[in-house]
């Protein structure tokens, strides 16, 4: 396939054998390869555990019945045991429903996104639109910190969180990342293109500096806002290491952590943790489709300009 892609580019024009149709055939094959794990996942969660591995995707139409396709992975009223996703789990702290983990993840990812968006855009705006002593020192420092892998600090950060007394608390997940150097860099780049005359005009009209940021600059950098929200939400939603090391109380866990545990809890009942995984993929997918235009342009602008 790559060969075809390369030859498309490399063969002289006259001998170019690759038509639009051939191009589409290749792209279509790639698209099918990329999408097949998703299709497999969707069909797996509706298959009965007994036939889950029997068919690659859905059973043939002639085999369709409530024996082969049903919602038992989500809810199974027939049995007493714990064998469906929405059944309450009995833990030492009492019953915990799957909804609880979903709510925890939604709360953490959206709170974190909003706070990080606010602090990063505010900082990026200050670094783009004001002149002051130490500005370039801060920018160089910020770019320097972006070069350092965050995981270097995993052990000392754990130590710090322990000393502050934030173990098993959401503060440990929300506060340390509340302002991102990467986000400030992106917003600084976006704010640079906002004309100073707009801000001057607002100042003459008596606008406060904060209201210039909120009412004039922020609406102008909306594409970056959309892109940053998605990146930040994805990062927090899918975050595994930090909640896994900080949070111990079962009812406070997030989806990546609990689903990773479910693989052991429901070892042979694949359908149950796959159903949970499918639910865990849906919110980022919705957000992505809502923000995709901003996202693609925002994602690449840093690389192209930089």
């Amino acid at each position: 396939m790559v060969g075809l892609g390369l030859s498309y580019l490399l063969l002289p024009k006259q001998r170019q054998r690759i038509t639009t149709i051939q191009r589409y055939v290749v792209l279509l094959l790639v698209a099918i390869l990329i999408l097949s794990p998703f299709l497999w996942l969707v069909s797996a969660v509706f298959k009965d555990t007994d036939v889950l591995m029997q068919y690659a995707f859905l059973p043939p139409l002639s085999e369709w019945s409530s024996e082969t396709l049903n919602l038992k992975n989500f809810y199974n009223p027939e049995t007493e045991e714990l064998d469906s996703l929405f059944e309450a789990e009995k833990t030492i702290e009492g019953e915990v429903h799957f909804w609880r983990y979903l709510a925890n993840s939604l709360f953490l990812a959206s709170t974190s996104t909003i706070v990080t968006l606010f602090f990063s855009s505010l900082g990026g705006y200050a670094l783009a639109k004001y002149e002051f002593h130490g500005k370039y020192a801060i920018i160089s420092f910020m770019l320097g910190t972006m070069m350092i892998p965050g995981l270097l600090l995993l052990a000392p950060l754990y130590n710090l969180i322990y000393k502050i007394g934030w173990m098993d608390s959401y503060w440990a997940l929300l506060v340390p990342g509340a302002s991102s150097a990467f986000g400030m860099f992106l917003f600084r780049q976006a704010c640079l293109s906002v004309p100073n005359s707009l801000m001057e005009a607002a100042r003459i009209d008596g606008c406060s500096e904060f209201s210039i940021y909120l009412n004039i600059v922020m609406p102008l950098v909306r594409p970056m806002t959309g892109a940053f929200c998605l990146v930040s939400f994805l990062g927090n939603w899918n975050s595994f290491v930090y909640p896994n090391i900080y949070i111990q109380t079962q009812s406070k866990l997030t989806l990546p952590v609990i689903l990773n545990q479910f693989v052991d809890v429901y070892s042979q009942q694949y359908g149950i943790f796959l159903a949970g995984t499918l639910i865990a993929i849906i919110p980022p997918a919705i957000l992505f489709f809502a923000l995709q235009r901003e996202f693609i342009s925002g994602l690449t602008s840093g690389a192209i300009k930089g």
Binding site: I34, L35, P37, F38, L234, W237, N238, S239, F240, P256, L259, N260, T277, A280, I281, P284, A285, F288
Partner: peptide, 9 residues
């Protein structure tokens, strides 16, 4: 689209 799916998932 695969990039939307967290590594654990």
């Amino acid at each position: 689209s695969p990039h939307l799916v967290g590594q654990v998932f």
